[in-house]
């Protein structure tokens, strides 16, 4: 039998190193955010500082004021909102229907479709940039928010379809059948019974699609040329010029970009957690 003191010591040691590791990771995660907050508050455009103060000496909210008054931040925000919300709405609409078909109906090529959808996720987005650009040019969609939106929907859709399909698989088919007998058409049964029960998956799908549009830079950089169509990531990039970088403005803008997403995550937190875990256990 092991010595109880030795066991207690081993348990304590385990505690210590697990906590040390967790704190180290927390520092890695939080430090950049605190740095950005500090930079956004510093007077002038100082990127580096010898101090570790969160609120630097002479802290000012000038950068935030400049973003709203001197920079077209609200225009970038509007463009990003249009693109992201559009991507989310189209993504949810297509994924909820596509996922349902793949979950509930048996048809020729279903397996191949599922595999094919999954396979599109294997290619890095940058690899698809050129063909995507050529396609959009043919469709006269280059330098339009609609074109960017279509590109984002295409990127987000495979994951969203799989999420929705996986969730529908956990909803008993009998519910849908009961609705059909109760007087619903197949579409009504889907809208009135299946869809309201799929809220967690719909939230995940919407959020994922929204985020695809919100933070994306590369596709937007290639597809959008007009200043008035710039999305937030492009707008922030425009603060870097050959001779000068407006670090405080850049930092303030970055934080402002994060804000709506943080709020969205907080509001949808409940659905998000259940949505990510649901489907893993049947019943």
């Amino acid at each position: 039998m092991a010595n109880p003191n030795k066991r207690r010591l081993a348990k304590m040691w385990n505690h210590v190193w697990i906590h040390a590791l967790v704190w180290l990771l927390v520092v890695f995660a939080v430090f950049p955010i605190l740095q950005i907050v500090a930079i956004s508050l510093r007077p002038g455009d100082q990127l580096y500082s010898t101090e570790l103060q969160l609120i630097p000496d002479g802290a000012t909210l000038d950068a935030y004021r400049i973003m709203f008054t001197e920079k077209p931040f609200l225009l970038w925000l509007r463009n990003s909102m249009v693109v992201s919300l559009g991507t989310a709405v189209i993504g949810v609409a297509l994924a909820s229907l596509g996922g349902f078909a793949l979950s509930r109906y048996r048809f020729g090529g279903r397996g191949a479709a599922l595999q094919g959808i999954l396979m599109t996720q294997m290619f890095p987005a940058t690899m698809l940039l050129l063909p995507l650009y050529l396609l959009m040019r043919k469709l006269h969609l280059v330098d339009t928010l609609g074109g960017v939106m279509i590109a984002y929907v295409a990127t987000a859709l495979p994951f969203c379809i799989w999420t929705m399909k996986g969730y529908y698989d956990t909803i008993p088919v009998a519910l849908n059948e009961a609705a059909l007998i109760d007087g619903c058409s197949p579409l009504q049964a889907f809208m009135r019974v299946t869809l309201p029960l799929s809220t967690p998956a719909l939230v995940i799908t919407a959020l994922f699609s929204f985020m695809t549009g919100w933070s994306e830079f590369m596709v937007a950089r290639v597809m959008l040329a007009s200043k008035e169509l710039m999305t937030l990531p492009l707008g922030l990039e425009s603060l870097f010029t050959t001779y000068q970088t407006e670090w405080a403005n850049y930092a303030a803008g970055s934080l402002l970009v994060c804000l709506p997403v943080v709020v969205l995550f907080l509001v949808l937190n409940r659905y998000l957690v259940s949505g990510l875990t649901l489907g893993s256990v049947k019943g």
């Binding site: 008993p172 009998a174 519910l175 059948e177 009961a178 007998i181 019974v193 309201p196």
Partner: peptide, 13 residues
């Protein structure tokens, strides 16, 4: 027709 299912199939929402 009306049908009663083994799993009851009541609409949870």
């Amino acid at each position: 027709i009306a049908m009663v299912f083994q799993s009851y199939a009541l609409y949870p929402h």
